[in-house]
Structures are given as C-alpha cells and as structure tokens.
C-alpha cells in the first residue's frame, strides 16, 4: 500500500485506504490526500459510506443466541472440578 501521498490518489488507491482512514491509521499526508479525494469524488464517497453502513449492519448480527445455557454448563463444570476439589479451603467465593 504505497501510493505517493504527494500525487493525487486514484479511486483504485482510495478504496484500499478506507479501513486505515476509518481506524485513523493514515499518516497526515495520506489522510489529507484521502480527504481531498473524497471531497471531489462521489463514487468514493458512496464507497466509504457503504463500508460504514456495512460495519453498522454487521453489528446488528451480534445476537449470538442464548448464552445462559453455556454459562450454566460452564459454572456447573467449575463447581464440579474446582470448587469441590478445593471446597473446604479458604472459603473463596462459593456463591451458592
């Protein structure tokens, strides 16, 4: 990824910079070049916007189903394998 910051960015170069741009990882010169390009290019503006919309939509997939059963099983295993083995120790945090 090495378009010269001095030269104007092409659209093809710009699309490879969008993640660095969003993540604020561009050096100052490249950031200026990217912003200058954006101001002057509807296609790249739409592209960047669509990447942002995609990221937002992905967050909407976050419902990962029911986690309570996983949790109960994990805690049961812990109780069985650890808490009981150390049960009479120092009384550390047996919550039930």
């Amino acid at each position: 990824m090495s378009p010269q910051a001095q030269a104007q960015l092409t659209c093809k170069e710009f699309v490879e910079l969008v993640t660095d741009l969003i993540e604020d990882q561009l050096d100052a010169a490249l950031r200026l070049a990217a912003e200058a390009h954006l101001g002057d290019c509807d296609g790249c503006e739409a592209y960047l916007e669509q990447i942002r919309q995609t990221v937002a939509a992905l967050r909407g997939l976050a419902d990962s189903g029911d986690f309570t059963r996983d949790r109960e099983r994990a805690l049961a295993a812990f109780r069985e394998l650890r808490a009981d083995a150390h049960g009479n120790g120092n009384g550390a945090g047996r919550s039930e």
């Binding site: 996983d70 949790r71 805690l75 812990f78 550390a92 945090g93 919550s95």
Partner: peptide
C-alpha cells in the same frame, strides 16, 4: 482466584468472554 475455586471470579470471566 480460579485455582482457589473462586466461583465468582470464574463467573465474571464467563460473563466477560462467553459471548
């Protein structure tokens, strides 16, 4: 805490990382 059988510490970890 985990080695000592601290269930509360384990539960916190499960809640934090589980999803």
């Amino acid at each position: 805490a985990l080695r000592g059988g601290d269930e509360r510490a384990f539960a916190d970890l499960v809640d934090e990382l589980g999803p």
